[in-house]
């Protein structure tokens, strides 16, 4: 059976500048794949390339079907939810409206309402903030809201861009703990971009290490975690 997501020779860039120089990677069904690397290695760009936010070359397949070259909204409609860099909160709208937008593509109101409850199960704090303007939430709460918005799409594949960014360590712990639950209960595949390599390697099955737009190391997350030399030279911990 084909992987949930497969990228083959994926290239992308901004304007004249090429950022990705032909990446091959995969996310298994219900699997977690981590993309690691320093600032500017091309991690965020990879996520943007997968969901068509920038012009790309090469092939991207979702469950065997080509999605490269399609519009972002069409890729989202095929079940790819992206928690973008900066969280993408609709600041002017309420928490409720943000969540409703997450479920925008789903016609069945009853199912969506049930999912609201499920999401509140993960993030009870959002229930308290339900009617509040999203711009007034704390960073951690906005991250929770962003993940909720993505989950409400009922995605097959979840793209997470630095969920730990700018958050207090305790909040990060909380969010990763919940993501473990989500992974077990929701049956989604996850492509995770993270600067905090130790956290990401604990969470992921597969990992790819990016450097200036190329994959330099790849393999099972556990192996990479054990590999002293990779850790020293690339991950710095």
């Amino acid at each position: 059976m084909a992987a949930l997501l497969e990228a083959e020779g994926l290239t992308a860039g901004y304007g004249q500048t090429a950022v990705l120089h032909g990446l091959d990677f995969a996310v298994e069904e219900r699997g977690v794949t981590a993309l690691l690397g320093a600032n500017g290695a091309g991690k965020t760009t990879t996520l943007r390339a997968v969901c068509g936010m920038i012009r790309t070359g090469g092939a991207v397949r979702l469950a065997g079907e080509r999605i490269d070259g399609r519009a972002t909204e069409e890729i989202a409609r095929r079940g790819v939810a992206h928690v973008p860099d900066g969280r993408g909160t609709f600041m002017e709208l309420t928490v409720e409206e943000n969540m409703r937008l997450g479920a925008y593509t789903r016609p069945n109101r009853a199912e969506v309402d049930a999912d609201f409850e499920r999401v509140f199960g993960y993030f009870p704090r959002l229930r308290q903030r339900f009617r509040q303007q999203a711009g007034t939430l704390s960073g951690g709460e906005q991250q929770m809201l962003a993940i909720s918005r993505a989950l409400l799409l009922r995605p097959r594949l979840l793209l997470l861009d630095e969920p730990s960014f700018g958050l207090a360590p305790l909040v990060v712990q909380e969010i990763f703990a919940i993501m473990r639950r989500i992974r077990e209960e929701q049956g989604v595949g996850i492509l995770l971009v993270e600067q905090n390599a130790s956290l990401a390697l604990d969470f992921a099955d597969q990992a790819y290490l990016l450097e200036t737009g190329r994959i330099v190391v790849s393999g099972p997350a556990a192996d990479i975690r054990r590999d002293e030399s990779v850790r020293r030279s690339y991950l710095g911990y």
Partner: peptide
């Protein structure tokens, strides 16, 4: 209405709107 909400969302934040599947 959901459509009205989507229109407001598209105006405020087109990039995020695309990510939830709104045809901006």
């Amino acid at each position: 209405t959901t459509l009205g909400l989507a229109m407001r969302a598209a105006a405020y934040n087109p990039a995020s709107s695309r990510l939830v599947g709104i045809r901006v």
